[in-house]
Amino acid sequence: MIWRNIASNFLTLAIVLLIAAAAAVAWAKREFSGPGPSAIAQCVQISPGASLNAVSNQLAAQGAISNAYIFRAGADYMDKARDLKFGSFLMPPQASMEQIVETVTAGGPSTCGTEVVVRVGVRENTVLLRDTNPETGAYEEMARWTPGSGDRPAPLVQAQDRADVRLSLVMAEGVTSWQVVEALRAADFLTGEVAEIPAEGSLAPDTYLLEKGGDRNAILAQMASRQAAILAQEWEARPFGMPYETPEEALIMASIVEKETGQADERPQVASVFVNRLRQGMRLQTDPTVIYGVTNGQAVLDRGLRRSELDTPTPFNTYRIDGLPPTPIANPGRAAIRAALNPDETDYLYFVADGTGGHAFSRTLEEHNAAVARWREIERQQGLPADSPVQTAD
């Protein structure tokens, strides 16, 4: 009788424990998958090599999750406990633990946090300090500095010394190698002296993550390696009959296309004009190459070309030389390289600005001269200085 009572009590206790365990599991699932505790957007920052335990405790401390143990258990159940990716990720208000696990294990570009961005632009280089507004989730500029314009703003200097700041370089399409080197030199958190400017066109426009104390020459080598890979891929996929003997010639053409238009959808058309001219033995007659011969890629020419500059023979004056110039005139992106190797099939031989940011394309000199006249009238109406017409044949 006694043993029967003990067994009955034990069975009852076991049932109670099972019910409690089931309730606890159900509660944990709801906690893991349900809305999180944060009423505002949260920037979740994952350090290189961070453990799941450290990340879960960090998230609990900043109020992004309600329970560090449930977060770890859920990540383990999803088989993602070892998949943490370095970066800073913006989580929306009330993001669930499940959402957070999915995001921090998927990786991708960082979307929040404090960052110092070295921007290599066509017209100027700038260094920006940006941070995330937790209410809007948008980046806001906190400080800006143009190299050579005076001392760096104090917030920018202070941010560079923080352990959690993200450092990056954004290289625009169409900048010169000299501009890239100048930007790297202005990034005083980097090390290493650059003894020689890399070959023009050899650096890939892209976003590059930087590290405090990183070597400038190693960064340039990474840029060059990326560009070489892009050029090799696009050259291998080129169609038959392109008027280039080497990948380097295609790179020269791509740099001209890059400098001639800021509209992505125009690149294949612009490339078609130059390819048509090469095939017909016509001179390219493109202003950006003449400008490069004047500046050597080490300045922005804030004026139109002078007649004397158009008349002066140089290796880059395509009004005076046949064929391509000897080197690229900038660093083209993949899209421009692809356009140079895959131009549209047109019979265009000329183009000129049309006042909309794009260009008017023409088949004959008569059509082109009419388009030039329309552009001159637009310049006059807008009070712009008259510039030399682009793509006007001799």
Rank of each mutant, 00 (worst) to 15 (best):
P155K: 11
A159R: 01
D151F: 04
T191W: 06
G174F: 06
V116E: 06
V157W: 02
V127S: 03
P155R: 12
L128C: 00
S149M: 01
V194L: 10
G121R: 03
G113C: 08
V175M: 03
A159L: 01
T132M: 05
V194Q: 10
A163M: 11
P147N: 06
E193R: 11
D164Q: 12
L169P: 08
R123N: 13
L156M: 04
L167F: 10
R123V: 14
V122R: 14
V157A: 14
A186F: 06
L169H: 08
D131C: 02
R119C: 02
G192Q: 07
E135R: 13
A154I: 13
T126C: 01
G121E: 04
S96L: 05
V118I: 15
S168Y: 04
N125A: 09
P155H: 04
Q158D: 13
D151A: 14
R166Q: 12
L128H: 09
L184G: 13
R130G: 01
S168L: 15
A186L: 08
S110H: 03
S168C: 11
E140Q: 12
T105E: 00
M171C: 09
Q158Y: 04
D151S: 15
P134R: 04
S110Q: 05
R119M: 08
E173P: 03
T103Y: 00
E98M: 11
L184P: 13
T126A: 07
V118Y: 10
T146W: 07
Y139K: 07
A186W: 04
E135Y: 12
G137E: 05
R152D: 08
S168D: 04
D161F: 09
G113V: 02
T132P: 02
I100F: 00
E141R: 14
V127E: 07
A186N: 06
T146G: 00
V104G: 02
E98R: 14
A183K: 09
S96F: 02
V157R: 14
S96N: 09
T136M: 11
E135K: 13
A159P: 05
V118N: 09
N133H: 07
T146L: 09
E98I: 03
A138I: 04
E173R: 11
W145G: 01
S110K: 01
W145V: 00
T136F: 07
T114G: 11
T111A: 01
V194W: 11
V116R: 08
A163G: 06
C112N: 00
E140D: 08
M142H: 10
R144Q: 09
T136G: 06
R130C: 03
P134V: 14
V157S: 12
W178V: 10
R166V: 09
G148P: 10
V101N: 00
E193Q: 14
V170F: 12
V157E: 14
G107T: 05
E141G: 00
V120Y: 05
A106K: 13
E98A: 14
V157Q: 13
A183Y: 12
G148I: 05
E141Q: 15
R152T: 14
T103A: 10
F189Y: 14
V157F: 03
Q99V: 04
L129T: 02
M171V: 15
P147M: 08
T132G: 01
E124L: 08
S96W: 07
